[in-house]
Design a protein around this nucleic acid. Structure first.
Lengths: 150, 150
DNA sequence: CATAATTTGTCAATTTTATTGACAATAAGT
DNA sequence: ACTTATTGTCAATAAAATTGACAAATTATG
C-alpha cells in the first residue's frame, strides 16, 4: 500500500510523517477517556506536563509543550479555576510562580492515564523492552533536537 | 527534570505523550519550509499522503489521515484548484475517483520534503539503522493498532 | 429485482485550538 | 540608573477540524 522507505533518513522521515495521523488517532481515543471529566485536550496536555515536571512555571510549561505562552496561561487559568492546579510561590521570581497539581488534579489525570495505559498494555506485549526504550529515546531526542535549533 | 518512567507500558505511554509537543515542534519547523509555497499544513499533509499512497480515493485518504471526510474533501478541492493533484477515474466507483499528484504537485512536495530531510540528516547519524527501523515500525503499528479498534 | 441501508460528495455553520497584538509589571543585564 | 528582555493579562483573529444536512451513488438484503 505505502511505498517502503529505503535509506535511514527516509525511514526516519516516514516515521515522523506518521506523527500527525498518530496524534489524531490518539486524540480520538483520548477524547473518549476525557468524556465526563470536563477536560479539554489542552487542559489534559498541561496537566500531564505538570505531572511530568512535578512543579513548573508557565514559561517552563510553554517550552515543554511548544505552545505560545498566552495559550498556556489561558489553560493554566482554567485549571486554577477548576482547582486542578495550584500556585506555589517562587523564591527566585515574584511574578513567575510555580504550578503543581492539587490532590484532585492529580487524581483526575491519574484516572485518565490509567484508562489509556490499559489500552496500551495489550499492544506493548508485541514489543521488547529495548524497542520501547528506543522509541521513547527517539521521541525525546527528536523533540529536543528539533526544538533547540529554533 | 522529568520523572523517568519505569515499566515498559509506562515508558511507551511517556513516549506517546511526547507526540503532541513533538508534532508542535515539527509544525513550527515545517511552517518555515512551507513559507512561500502557499501550502497550508493540511494541504501539505494530504499531498504527503497522496505521495505515499501513489493513488487514493478521498475515503482512503480520510482513513489514512484520520480526519473527517468533509475536511479532506475541502483540502482536496483546494489542491485541485491549485492543480497539485488531479483526478483519475475509478473503474470500480463512479463517484469516488482516485487522486494523484500532478507533475507540479509532485515537484512541490518533493521540494518541501528535501528541505526537511536535510534537517534530519545530522540528527539521524546519532541513531543506528535498527533504531530507526524500530521507531518507524512502532509508529506504524501503534497507529494501526489504535486506529483499528474504533 | 426492489428497496432499505450505507457510502460518498458538497455546502454551510460552528467549535476547538492556537496565534498574534498590545500594554503593563517585573526582572535581568549593562 | 537605565535599557532590554521576560512574564502576565486581555482581546482580536486565524487556522484546523468537526458537525449538520441533504442529494447522488453504491452496496446489502429480503
Amino acid at each position: 500500500m505505502t511505498k517502503k522507505p529505503t535509506s535511514k533518513a527516509e525511514l526516519l522521515y516516514a516515521g515522523i510523517q506518521m506523527t500527525r495521523p498518530l496524534l489524531r488517532t490518539i486524540s480520538n481515543r483520548v477524547e473518549a477517556d476525557l468524556e465526563g471529566t470536563g477536560l479539554t485536550v489542552g487542559q489534559r496536555a498541561v496537566l500531564e506536563a505538570v505531572l511530568n515536571l512535578e512543579q513548573a512555571t508557565a514559561p517552563q510549561l510553554t517550552n515543554f509543550l511548544q505552545l505560545k505562552r498566552q495559550f498556556v496561561a489561558k489553560v493554566l487559568k482554567e485549571l486554577l479555576d477548576k482547582q486542578q492546579v495550584e500556585q506555589v510561590s517562587n523564591p527566585r521570581h515574584k511574578r513567575s510562580v510555580f504550578y503543581r497539581l492539587t490532590a484532585s488534579g492529580k487524581a483526575l489525570i491519574e484516572k485518565v492515564r490509567t484508562a489509556e495505559m490499559k489500552r496500551l498494555e495489550e499492544f506493548v506485549k508485541e514489543f521488547s523492552e529495548e524497542e520501547v526504550e528506543t522509541y521513547y529515546r527517539m521521541q525525546y531526542v527528536l523533540n529536543d533536537a528539533l526544538a533547540k535549533r529554533s
